[in-house]
Each structure stands twice: as C-alpha cells, then as structure tokens.
Simulated scan of single mutants.
Amino acid sequence: MSLFRKPQPITVIALRDAPDLVTSLRRALETATDAERPGLERALALTEDVAERPDAELRGRWVRRHLDAAGYEGPADSVNAIRVLRQAEPGLTLLQALTYARETAAAENTPL
C-alpha cells in the first residue's frame, strides 16, 4: 500500500428530497381547504428551511448522530471521535472520516 495513493471518493451522500417536497407542498396548498392550509403552510416553511442547508451541514449532522449513538460526547474532530466514526461505519476511509469530522467540528464551533 502506498502513502501516495489516489484519494477514495467520499461515500456519504447528502440526499436532497427537499426540493421535490417543496414542490409537492406548494401544489397541495393550491387545492387545500381552510382547515388544511395552516398545517401545509408550516410544513412548507420547514421544508424550505431544510432545502437551503448546505451539504456539509447535512454531513455534520450525520456524523454527530453516529457519535451520539455511540455515546461519544467529545469534540467531533478528536482521534477518539474518528475512531468511533470508523467503527460505526467500517466502509469509511481514514481520510473520509477525518474530512467529515473536521466539517462537523467547524460547524459546531461556528456561532449562530
């Protein structure tokens, strides 16, 4: 095995169904009754919010869910966190786990 091998493609893909959901909710609002309208409007607002989030944020949430499920509470980019992440998802390479952990830590350290 070479230290200079080509990096493997990142295997975590952020699934983006939100745009389709936004379209469906807008169509449903066109024919909604007065009783249905408030719930559909709220669902549409929530879905539009999720649709605007960047992929790095979605990957960060994925990482944090895995760390939380394993009972890990420390920084997302520590050696222990990367070890936990790779144990939870054995298909992740070290480079992938490190990249995701760094994205997660950066997102968690960014003030709102």
Results as ranks from 00 to 15, higher is better:
residue 80 N to D: 12
residue 28 A to N: 13
residue 73 E to L: 06
residue 30 E to A: 13
residue 4 F to T: 09
residue 97 A to H: 07
residue 104 T to A: 05
residue 43 A to M: 09
residue 2 S to C: 02
residue 10 I to P: 03
residue 6 K to Y: 14
residue 41 E to N: 08
residue 84 V to I: 13
residue 59 R to W: 08
residue 30 E to L: 09
residue 29 L to D: 05
residue 49 D to T: 11
residue 25 L to G: 05
residue 39 G to D: 06
residue 86 R to S: 07
residue 70 A to H: 02
residue 95 L to D: 13
residue 82 I to W: 06
residue 78 S to C: 01
residue 77 D to G: 02
residue 49 D to H: 14
residue 50 V to C: 01
residue 60 G to F: 04
residue 56 A to N: 09
residue 65 R to M: 07
residue 85 L to R: 02
residue 50 V to W: 06
residue 20 D to P: 01
residue 28 A to M: 14
residue 27 R to S: 13
residue 15 L to I: 14
residue 107 A to G: 14
residue 72 Y to T: 01
residue 4 F to A: 04
residue 59 R to T: 10
residue 101 A to G: 01
residue 112 L to T: 11
residue 18 A to C: 03
residue 82 I to G: 05
residue 75 P to R: 13
residue 111 P to R: 09
residue 112 L to K: 09
residue 58 L to E: 00
residue 1 M to P: 04
residue 2 S to L: 06
residue 32 A to M: 05
residue 78 S to E: 03
residue 105 A to P: 03
residue 12 V to H: 13
residue 65 R to W: 12
residue 112 L to D: 09
residue 67 L to Y: 01
residue 8 Q to A: 14
residue 15 L to H: 15
residue 112 L to Q: 07
residue 106 A to Q: 09
residue 94 L to N: 06
residue 9 P to M: 02
residue 52 E to Y: 02
residue 91 G to I: 05
residue 7 P to K: 14
residue 85 L to S: 08
residue 8 Q to L: 13
residue 42 R to W: 12
residue 52 E to P: 00
residue 111 P to L: 05
residue 72 Y to A: 06
residue 23 T to D: 15
residue 109 N to I: 01
residue 9 P to A: 13
residue 97 A to Q: 04
residue 14 A to W: 02
residue 46 L to Q: 09
residue 84 V to S: 00
residue 108 E to L: 15
residue 31 T to R: 14
residue 52 E to T: 10
residue 52 E to H: 04
residue 85 L to Q: 01
residue 48 E to I: 06
residue 105 A to G: 03
residue 48 E to V: 05
residue 24 S to A: 13
residue 23 T to S: 15
residue 62 W to S: 01
residue 2 S to M: 04
residue 44 L to T: 11
residue 112 L to W: 11
residue 92 L to G: 05
residue 97 A to N: 06
residue 45 A to Q: 10
residue 91 G to W: 05
residue 59 R to E: 02
residue 73 E to A: 13
residue 35 A to T: 14
residue 3 L to Y: 13
residue 52 E to R: 12
residue 66 H to W: 00
